[in-house]
Design a binder for these strands. Structure first.
Lengths: 244, 244, 244, 244
DNA sequence: GATGAATGAGGTTTCATTCAT
DNA sequence: TATGAATGAAACCTCATTCAT
């Protein structure tokens, strides 16, 4: 009943032919769009606003992108590509330094700092990713998350190496990696709460202490605490009943 | 931009008069809406869909809420209220336990566990908050953030108490609190990456070790490392030049 | 590169729920649309114009149809259904009359008249079909043409029956059927050239004579003429060279 | 409606000055356009597509034509001119042969064959005419129809001459001419249904028999039939009541 | 004279909101 | 109070046309 009746036109490719000009235009528009998406959200930003911010007419935006959604896609892709490159560099560095016998702690911190600085570089896009991930198709989302998983794997690998070298206690490697990832990303996602660090270097300088705390945290002492914990039974028990 | 714009005049009160019915209706609608917002996003959810899911007519939705936006507000304020209550309990517990001379570590962990469990309870809403914060008016957003700041203050206060009691090293109290907050929230926000913990209790059981690692992390050892760091100069320097 | 990024909303069904009202509305809108499509063409008619002509708001049109193209589809479907019904009746009548031993000429004319009157009834839609066939998908076009082929087959069958009964000379049955079909449709398609016939009955009254002329046309006499034709050689030859 | 609307002011002459180049360019573009118009329809063909097919830039198209509409006009007027020329030739031939005392039947067939072959030659444009007539201004449309009327007049004239010479029975001259016109055009318009004739010559060879059948059809015999018809009263009556 | 990026009017479509029933 | 059809503003997008190079 609802079957397609009319011939659909194939959606045509971007209209601008000059490759260099096309890319420049895309970047100009995407940059304007990113700012607006960030402050107002993707859905609250109209193409007209983007065009205005990029000092273009509405029509021109569609000479560079075939749809509004492609702008978002472009931003994510850019993010993706950059991440891939850095990931590759990091892995190479890691292999090289490991061979040189560099201290695992230092080794980890070097790679981790690199990641934190990447987050800083891509701050806008990371936030955009958090906000608009629900809008993506699962395929697109998959690609984005795959990137993260590869990062986490790299971190886990390095931590495992540290464990092997007795630099860190064993156990909970995956959660440690996850937490360090989250803390790095929080520089972008909750940047408003970290205003006291004016630059990412300042942030990292402080963060690395906590990071080492995480890496060196051990299960032994904690179990002991847990034992104590049970003595405050009433309160702890009541907590268990909170969530439905 | 849209968020700041003057709202058009609009019926200011819901049509339903009976206070009890009104609240029941609101909750029914908001619950349906929350599920949809979560899986499709606020902007990709139409009022008609909400009405259908809540087994109501479109018109009826507007008898309970004056706008779609208000449904979002309702969800957030519900979150707020719940958080306020727990915050109040936590503070009371904290004061009581402090008086009883409970070990600061335990004390912190008790309060922190309570918070982690709250996050679990409000998981949907926390995620919604991350995603749709941009759809709120700045006033609404302010209220939301104020709540978080109060939580963070409480955590800071307890950490400071631990420092005072020599349970934790001094320094970086605010960042420590911030990080612990973020890690708690990651249970909601990056839940997909924490699937190996089937229940929040499992998660906390492991997380608390890292949390203690963070709390006990010190600046001394780190500085020593940084000294070493400088020996790998070339690589480290190059990192500094990464972000533009 | 152009891959779909954002989740698409499933296009929702017509918004009006009351079945009767929905159909009435559809017919009202489609009727207004048909008039406009006919005089201005489908592409030169905007939904706004349709809405105005149907005394509705633009939005309301989309409460009844999910797209402009569905209006066209509706018109064609209506045409299709009507044609199917009549075709069925015609075949039944044909079988019945044949059994009664009715004169093949009369039999043919009865069925043919029925078809001409159907064309009159669906005049607008037939013209629309001619004009917008190129806009249809091949599936849709196929359905439309299949209907015509079935009619033509019926006509051919009856002519063949007449041939068998020696009412018509043998030969060219398919072309005869085709021509009679075309002449019937010309009442719709070139109606402007047939203004002197105020009603379809008048048209048929005259057309039937020519129709019989076609049915009774024979090959014998013609061959004789062609022989003569060759004597005017120069002119006839030159004609052959016209098309490239 | 749109067709009637006042055109906005616009550069009235093509930019290209060299007369010969201008015409060549126009023909090149129009030829590309015709192919696209025919397969996709006028409205589903963009100027960019035309330019591409003609291996030109979009801008250049507008150096040769002042508007897209003008391309359509050009195609039709080309058609017109060709028809005018042939019409003129036909009339001359007709006068000449009449003087020579050629048999009216042959005479008619010669002229008619010429017309059928013209249709074949202009097949694309004829189809375009049927499809896109609604896209023309009424003035343009008028010119097109005037051409057809002149053809029909010529045919009528020849038929009348045949009647005078007792070659054809009297009566219904206009309808006969109309029908023969339609059947000739059906070679273009419903070409898909005439695939069994591989060339226009084959088609005409068969068509001419039916054409003679039409020309020689008489009213007398028919009236007799009609009388018979009334005996099958019930069915025939019911038919009359079909159209509303 | 040729080019193709820029333009903006206008098209279709969605959807929050209103209001008569 | 509940309903759901009607509304129209505003969104995305297309494309004929212009014009600086």
């Amino acid at each position: 009943m609802k079957g397609q009746v009319l011939r659909k036109k194939r959606r045509q490719t971007s209209q601008v032919t000059d490759e260099k000009r096309l890319l420049e235009g895309k970047e100009r528009i995407a940059s304007a769009a990113a700012a607006l998406f960030l402050s107002n959200g993707y859905h609250n930003t109209s193409v007209r606003e983007i065009a205005q911010k990029a000092s273009l007419s509405v029509g021109s935006v569609f000479n560079y992108f075939t749809s509004k959604e492609e702008i978002l896609f472009f931003l994510f892709s850019h993010n993706q590509e950059r991440t891939e490159v850095v990931l590759h560099e990091q892995r190479a560095e890691y292999e090289r330094l490991k061979e040189q016998g560099v201290d695992p702690k230092q080794l980890f911190l070097l790679v981790y700092e690199r990641y934190v600085r990447l987050i800083d570089e891509l701050r806008r896009d990371v936030v955009l990713g958090y906000q608009e991930m629900k809008s993506l198709t699962s395929a697109e989302r998959g690609r984005l998350l795959a990137g993260e998983e590869r990062i986490q794997s790299l971190l886990e690998e390095i931590i495992a190496y540290g464990v092997e070298k007795k630099a860190f206690p064993a156990g909970d490697v995956d959660l440690k990696a996850h937490c360090l990832l989250v803390l790095a990303q929080s520089w972008a996602v909750r940047h408003w709460a970290l205003k006291r660090f004016s630059k990412v270097g300042d942030y990292f300088q402080t963060l690395l202490k906590l990071a080492l705390g995480i890496l060196e945290s051990d299960s032994a002492a904690v179990n002991e605490i847990r034992t104590l914990d049970d003595t405050v039974n009433g309160f702890a028990q009541s907590l268990r009943r909170v969530s439905p």
